[in-house]
Simulated assay, not measured.
Amino acid sequence: MEYVTTQGVEVPALGLGTARFDSTDVCRRAVEAALDIGYRHVDTAQIYGTEGAVGAAVSTAAVDRDDVFVTTKLSESNRSRDRVLESTRQSLAALRTDYVDLLLMHSPNSTVPLAETIGAMNDLRDEGIVRHVGVSNFSVDQLRRAMERSDAPILTNQVEYHPYRDQSALLETCIDEGVVLTAYSPLAVGKVTSNATLAEIGDRYGKTAAQVALRWLLQQEMVAAIPKAAGRDHLRENFDVFDFALADDEMRAVFEGTGGPIDGLRDRLGL
């Protein structure tokens, strides 16, 4: 396992996303299998309906709770101070844990002042039942506003990021500010599997196009990825990305071959 280290925190670079599972049983089995394979980062959210399944799997795994980085997210309806405090405690009960490693604001909200939501999240951190705070689906400007209103460091901004989705401006900001960019849907909901550039690069290493896409993400500074997978074979495939590295020209080829601009990040990524 590789880690993204920032603010004195080690975040496992590869995690398991748990959105849109067919059932809670399928989700629980997937988390169990992932932990058995070696995953140590599990992502859930209040709106996913998977907190209970994640909690059941983590609490019964042959892995210490402190060794698993668990993230959950506040739903749109839980942004007022009272709802942040109450709903997070409900999430802890569902997750069968005394704390979460990371609590995110799932998306920007114009109905409740940002300072109120972030302030309540900070209070939970001070209480010790939330280790770190962050945001999700925030633009560069929105991220900066969240950072300004938070006494605690913003650990991550979780956004959609893959070879077909340009996040150059956001990633530059995250690198500058020491914020992890956590990539959800890193395989573009399966679209990367048919990409000729990724497949050609993968042939050189005996890897699939999906594995190349994940490796491409993980080799970028301050980037973690949380692909979703249900079956053990796919979980294993996604996890087997730490035994090879892409050359600079291959990193450039993924950017250029899939239409993503590279100019803004070329110097920052050493390309």
Rank of each mutant, 00 (worst) to 15 (best):
S150F: 00
L187A: 04
L246I: 04
E221K: 15
A225D: 12
D151N: 12
N157G: 07
D243T: 06
T193A: 15
V223Y: 01
E177Q: 15
R149W: 00
K191I: 10
C174N: 11
K191T: 14
V179M: 10
Y161V: 11
D166C: 03
C174K: 02
G259P: 11
R144H: 12
R232P: 07
D243N: 08
Y205M: 05
Y205H: 13
L143H: 06
M222F: 12
V212Q: 00
F244C: 03
L246S: 04
M251P: 06
T156A: 14
D151Q: 12
E160W: 00
P153Q: 09
Y184W: 15
E160S: 11
R215Q: 01
S150A: 14
E200D: 15
G206F: 01
L171T: 03
F255L: 03
D249E: 15
G231Y: 11
T182N: 08
K191V: 13
E237H: 11
D240P: 10
L214C: 08
N195W: 00
A245Y: 09
M251A: 00
L143W: 04
P186Q: 09
A230V: 12
R145H: 13
L181H: 02
H234P: 04
I226Q: 08
D151S: 13
L143A: 08
N157H: 08
G259Y: 10
D249M: 02
P163V: 12
D248H: 12
H234K: 04
Q142V: 02
P163W: 03
F138H: 12
L171N: 09
A210I: 08
E172I: 12
L155S: 01
D151E: 15
Q158S: 08
G257P: 07
W216H: 08
S168V: 05
D141Y: 09
D233H: 13
T193K: 14
L181Q: 01
N238Y: 11
S139C: 13
D141N: 13
T173M: 15
T182P: 02
A146Q: 00
A210M: 04
V179D: 10
H234D: 07
D203V: 02
N157K: 07
L218C: 06
R204V: 08
V223G: 06
Q158D: 07
K191M: 13
Q158R: 01
S139Q: 11
I201E: 07
A230S: 14
G206S: 09
S168Q: 10
L246G: 07
T197D: 12
D233I: 12
S150R: 04
Q167C: 11
A210Q: 11
D166I: 09
V241H: 03
V189F: 13
G178I: 05
I226R: 09
D151V: 12
R215W: 06
R144K: 14
C174P: 02
H162V: 11
S139N: 12
P186N: 07
Q220F: 03
D176S: 11
V223W: 09
K207G: 05
Q158Y: 07
Y205G: 05
V189E: 14
Y184F: 14
